[in-house]
Design a protein around this nucleic acid. Structure first.
Length: 839
DNA sequence: GCTTAGGGTTGG
C-alpha cells in the first residue's frame, strides 16, 4: 500500500500549468487588442493581420507559440480551428474583388509542401477566402510562391470541389482574429529565385501596409435594394431554432426590425450549426455581414451569402455588450457597441416583448405556453417519438407536478432523486423532431425550451402506469412536435446571464441537499474505474511528445491511448469532499463508501452490549480501566509478547468503549484495536468498523478478502508497529483510502466526463489517507477544486488546464464498449504571478 | 451542386 502511494507521489512526469487567465478576461483582452489595433496600426507591426517573417533570422515576427499546426489533409468541417494554423505555399492568387464600398474578397490557393509523400494533391491544396481589409492587405503583401501561415480561420465546405479537385473544405479569414504570417527566405540568400523582399529586423520596414481595421457600413431595414449584398443590425422579433432543411443545410428562420420599423424576414442556410446565429430570446440583437436582399411574395427577405457572418448581443438595456459570435473571427468595436445600445434603447420603448414569456417553474399556469430556462437532471426514453426530460430551475411550481418514474435502464442520469428534489423536478415530454435533438443533451446541461405547454392530467401521457392515473391534477410539460412558434430546445452556455441567475437559486437548494448525492454518484458510477489500477496499464503514461488535442478529437479516438487536452473544469461531483473519499481494496478491486460516524457509533454501542464474561486468548494480559462518567469499566488487553519486548502499550486491545472514547484513547496510544465479546470469546468487531485506530487515522479491512481473527502481533524490539503489521497479524486485508471524483471537462469543441482516481493524490499533492484524517489536507483539496471551478463562477473565471487523459475501455460485461477517461500524470500547480501569460 | 425556406393562432 505504501509503496504504491509513494510511487504515485513520486511520479514526476507532470503536465499541468494552471493558466492564470480565464476566458472572460481573454474576451476583454481580445476586444482591447482590436481597439488597439485601430489605434496602433501606424506604429506597430505586432497587431497587423498580415505579418512578414524572415526565416532563420533574428527577433522577427513569430507565429505565437500556443498555435499548433494542422495538416491540410486533416481539415474537415468539424475540425476545431481555434489555436490552429495551416501552412502552405501560395500557388494561386486570385484578383481582389470589391463587393461593396471598402469591402473586398479574394481567393487564393495554398499547397502544403511538407506532408506525407503519399498524400494526394487533392488533400494538400486548399482554397482560402480572404474577406474585408484582410483581402486587400494580402493582395499587396503576398506574392505567388510565398509560404504563408494562416490562423484564426474558419472552415467551410468547398462548393467547387468537383470542379477544381482541391480540398473538400475551404478556409475563410476575416475580422480581428485572423492572421496571416508570410515567411520568406533570409535576405542573405543570394540564390533566391524570387525577387528579394527587402527586410531588416526593424518592424518599420514591414512589407504590408496595414489599412485601418475594416469599417463596415450598415443598411437600415427600410433601404434594402433587391439584389444588394448588405450588412445589417436588427432586433429579433421572431426566430426558430435551426432545423434541417430538405437540402444540405440547416436553416434558421427569423424576423428582425430596427428603428425604421420595417420587419424583415431572414433565412440563414449553413451546414454547420455553429455558424448559425445564437439567438436565445426575442429581443436579442443581431448583426449580420454579407446578406443578400431578395424578393419573395412582394417583400424583401435577407438570405446569407458567401462570407456571411453573424454576431448576437443580448437585448437588455444596460447590460454588458458582449458579442456572441458564430464564427471564430469577427470584428467588434466601439461603433458596434454604440449601435447595439441605440437599438436596445429604441426597442425598450417598443412593444417587441415576446408573445410567449420566459418564466420560472414557480410562475407557470395550466394550459399556458411559455419558454423555460432550466437544468437537465436526467432524461429517459419513452418511445421512438417521445423522450422525457427531467428538469428543474430551483423554483417550486405552484401546482403539483406530475411524478414520473422511468426505468433506470432507459434513463440517462440518476433515475431517482431525494424526495425534496423530486418535488422540484418538472417532467417535460418532447416529441417527434425534438427527440433527435434531445439525444445530444446531457444531464447537467442548461437549456432553454421554447414554446412549452403545461398540461394538467396524466391519463393520456405516454409510458405511464395505471398507478399514476390518480394524479389527474398534476402538471406535465409538453414540447409538441414541429417548429412552429419557435418550438425547440437550445443549450445555453454556462456564462449566460439567465443561467447564472438560475444557478444561484439552484446552489442555495443544493447546499441543503447533501447525503443523497452519494447514492446518485454510486448510480452514475455503477462501475468503479478499477481497470486503470491494474499493472498492465501502468505503462500508459504520458510523454512530452503527446500533442494537445481537443475533446472532440479525444472522443473520436480509439481507447488505449493517452491524450493531452487543454480544458476548463465545467463541473464536478461530488461537491463535498467526504463523498469523494472511498475505501478501495486492491485485492478484489472493489470500492466502498467510508462509513459515517453515526453508523460507527451504532456498531460500537452494539459491541458494548454483550457483557457476558469471556475468556481472552492465552497470549493476552487483561486489565480494567474505570471510567468516571458514565461510571463503568473498560477492559483493556495487551500482548504478553509485546510486554516482553517492552512494547506493551504500543498496541492496545480495548473492549466496551464507545466510538468517541476509542478516538480519545487513540490520541494517546499508538495503536488501538477495538474488540468485543461474542459467544464467550474475545473477537474483533464487524469489519464495517475500523479494525485499528492510529492517532486520527482509522484503518478498515475488506470484508470479502479478510480472514480476521484475534491473533498476537509479533514485533521485534526495534520494529515499529504500523497498520500493515497489525493487519497482517489479524488476517485483515487493508482497505486503502482513495479519492474518486467525476469531472466534467470542457473546451471549445465538446465536454467530457472523466474520472479522477488513480492519480488523484498526485493531482492534489495530498494523500487520500491524509485527506481522511486531517483538516489541512482537506483544505488543500477543497481549495484546489474551488480555484479550478469557482462556485457560482462563470466560464470566464475558470482557469485553463493542461491535463493528461488516459482513455480505456471498461472490462465490463454489461457495457463492453464503454470508453472511460481518467486524469493521469497531472498535478495542479499553484498559479505563480511571475508566469507569463501566453500570447 | 447553387437547393434548402419563405413564422402563423398549437397534440400525444
Amino acid at each position: 500500500m505504501y509503496e504504491e502511494q509513494r510511487s504515485l507521489t513520486l511520479s514526476h512526469s507532470v503536465h499541468v500549468t494552471l493558466q492564470t487567465r480565464g476566458c472572460r478576461q481573454e474576451k476583454h483582452e481580445s476586444n482591447l487588442s482590436i481597439r488597439n489595433q485601430a489605434r496602433e496600426t501606424s506604429c506597430s507591426c505586432d497587431v497587423m493581420p498580415v505579418r512578414v517573417m524572415s526565416e532563420g533570422a533574428g527577433p522577427n515576427v513569430q507565429v505565437p507559440a500556443h498555435l499548433t499546426r494542422i495538416p491540410v489533409s486533416l481539415i474537415s468541417i468539424s475540425t476545431d480551428c481555434s489555436d490552429r494554423t495551416v501552412k502552405g505555399r501560395v500557388v494561386h492568387k486570385g484578383p481582389l474583388v470589391s463587393q461593396a464600398s471598402d469591402d473586398f474578397i479574394m481567393k487564393t490557393v495554398v499547397q502544403e509542401e511538407d506532408t506525407e509523400p503519399n498524400s494526394s494533391s487533392q488533400n494538400v491544396s486548399i482554397n482560402v477566402f480572404l474577406l474585408g481589409a484582410l483581402a486587400k492587405d494580402f493582395s499587396q503583401a503576398v506574392n505567388q510562391g510565398d509560404v504563408v501561415v494562416f490562423s484564426g480561420f474558419t472552415v467551410g465546405k468547398s462548393p467547387t470541389v468537383n470542379k477544381d479537385k482541391l480540398h473538400h473544405c475551404n478556409l475563410q479569414l476575416s475580422g480581428g482574429d485572423a492572421f496571416i504570417y508570410v515567411s520568406r527566405p533570409p535576405p542573405a540568400d543570394p540564390r533566391s529565385p524570387r525577387p528579394a523582399v527587402k527586410r531588416s529586423s526593424a518592424p518599420s520596414t514591414e512589407v504590408s501596409r496595414m489599412n485601418k481595421a475594416q469599417k463596415y457600413s450598415y443598411s437600415r431595414l427600410d433601404e434594402l435594394k433587391v439584389g444588394a449584398v448588405v450588412n445589417v443590425f436588427g432586433v429579433v422579433i421572431f426566430f426558430k431554432q435551426p432545423f434541417k432543411s430538405r437540402g444540405t443545410d440547416f436553416c434558421s428562420s427569423l424576423k428582425i426590425t430596427d428603428q425604421s420599423n420595417q420587419k424583415i424576414g431572414c433565412t440563414i442556410f449553413c451546414e454547420n450549426l455553429d455558424n448559425h446565429p445564437k439567438i436565445f430570446q426575442i429581443g436579442d440583437i443581431i448583426r449580420m455581414h454579407r446578406v443578400k436582399a431578395q424578393l419573395y411574395n412582394d417583400s424583401i427577405t435577407l438570405v446569407n451569402t458567401f462570407g456571411f457572418s453573424v454576431v448576437m448581443f443580448d437585448g437588455v438595456q444596460g447590460g454588458a455588450v458582449e458579442p456572441r459570435a458564430s464564427s471564430r473571427s469577427f470584428s467588434f468595436d466601439q461603433e458596434d457597441r454604440r449601435v447595439v445600445e441605440e437599438l436596445r434603447a429604441w426597442a425598450a420603448g417598443q412593444a417587441l416583448l415576446p408573445p410567449v414569456p420566459t418564466m420560472p417553474l414557480s410562475a407557470i399556469q395550466p394550459n399556458a405556453y411559455f419558454d423555460l430556462t432550466c437544468q437537465l437532471l436526467a432524461k429517459a426514453f419513452i418511445s421512438s417519438s417521445c423522450t422525457l426530460l427531467r428538469v428543474w430551475d430551483g423554483t417550486r411550481c405552484a401546482h403539483p407536478l406530475l411524478k414520473v418514474t422511468a426505468s433506470p435502464n432507459l434513463t440517462e442520469g440518476p433515475s431517482s432523486f431525494s424526495a425534496e428534489r423530486e418535488s422540484l423536478i418538472a417532467n417535460v415530454f418532447v416529441y417527434d423532431n425534438h427527440v433527435e435533438f434531445a439525444k445530444q443533451l446531457k444531464p447537467g446541461d442548461f437549456l432553454r425550451i421554447y414554446n412549452l405547454r403545461a398540461i394538467l392530467g396524466s391519463s393520456t401521457l405516454p409510458g405511464l402506469t395505471n398507478s399514476q392515473s390518480e394524479e389527474v391534477n398534476h402538471l406535465a410539460l409538453h414540447l409538441h412536435g414541429g417548429i412552429e412558434f419557435g418550438r425547440g430546445i437550445r443549450i445555453l452556455p454556462d456564462d449566460c446571464a439567465d443561467v447564472q441567475e438560475m444557478k444561484r437559486v439552484i446552489d442555495t437548494f443544493q447546499q441543503d441537499e447533501d447525503e443523497l448525492n452519494d447514492s446518485m454518484l454510486l448510480e452514475v458510477w455503477s462501475t468503479p474505474p478499477e481497470v486503470l489500477g491494474t499493472n498492465q496499464s501502468r505503462h500508459r503514461r504520458c510523454g512530452d511528445d503527446v500533442q494537445t488535442e481537443t475533446l472532440s478529437e479525444v472522443k473520436q479516438s480509439d481507447p488505449g491511448r493517452v491524450h493531452h487536452v487543454r480544458v476548463q473544469l465545467r463541473s464536478y461531483e461530488p461537491r463535498r469532499l467526504h463523498q469523494a473519499l472511498k475505501l478501495y481494496c486492491s485485492k478484489c478491486s472493489t470500492m466502498q463508501e467510508v462509513p459515517d460516524d453515526e453508523l460507527l457509533a451504532g456498531l460500537f454501542s452494539e459491541a458494548c452490549r454483550d457483557s457476558e464474561p469471556c475468556t481472552p486468548p492465552p497470549w493476552m494480559l487483561s486489565g480494567q480501566v474505570d471510567l468516571a462518567s458514565p461510571p463503568r469499566a473498560l477492559s483493556v488487553h495487551l500482548s504478553s509478547h509485546l510486554l516482553y519486548e517492552s512494547k506493551a502499550t504500543e498496541l492496545i486491545f480495548i473492549k466496551g468503549s464507545t466510538l468517541g472514547e476509542t478516538c480519545r484513547l487513540a490520541a494517546g496510544y499508538q495503536n488501538i484495536v477495538p474488540v468485543m465479546s461474542s459467544g464467550g470469546h474475545l473477537t474483533l468487531l464487524d469489519l464495517t468498523a475500523p479494525f485499528l485506530f492510529r492517532g486520527r487515522k482509522r484503518y478498515y479491512g475488506c470484508k470479502r478478502c479478510s480472514e480476521a481473527a484475534l491473533r498476537d502481533v509479533c514485533a521485534e524490539k526495534d520494529e515499529q508497529i504500523d497498520e500493515k503489521m497489525v493487519a497482517d497479524a489479524l488476517g485483515v486485508q487493508l482497505l486503502r483510502f482513495v479519492l474518486l471524483m467525476k469531472l466534467e471537462l470542457q473546451d471549445a469543441t465538446d465536454t467530457l466526463d472523466v474520472f479522477l482516481w488513480r492519480d488523484a493524490e498526485l493531482f492534489f499533492g495530498v494523500s487520500a489517507e491524509e485527506a481522511a484524517a486531517n483538516q489541512e489536507a482537506q483544505n488543500i483539496v477543497c481549495q484546489t477544486m474551488n480555484s479550478l471551478c469557482p462556485p457560482g463562477g462563470s466560464a470566464g473565471e475558470r482557469p485553463w488546464l493542461d491535463v493528461c487523459l488516459a482513455a480505456y475501455r471498461l472490462d465490463d460485461t454489461e457495457e463492453p464498449n464503454r470508453t472511460c477517461y481518467q486524469i493521469c500524470d497531472t498535478a495542479v500547480t499553484k498559479p505563480s504571478r511571475s508566469e507569463p501569460n501566453p500570447a
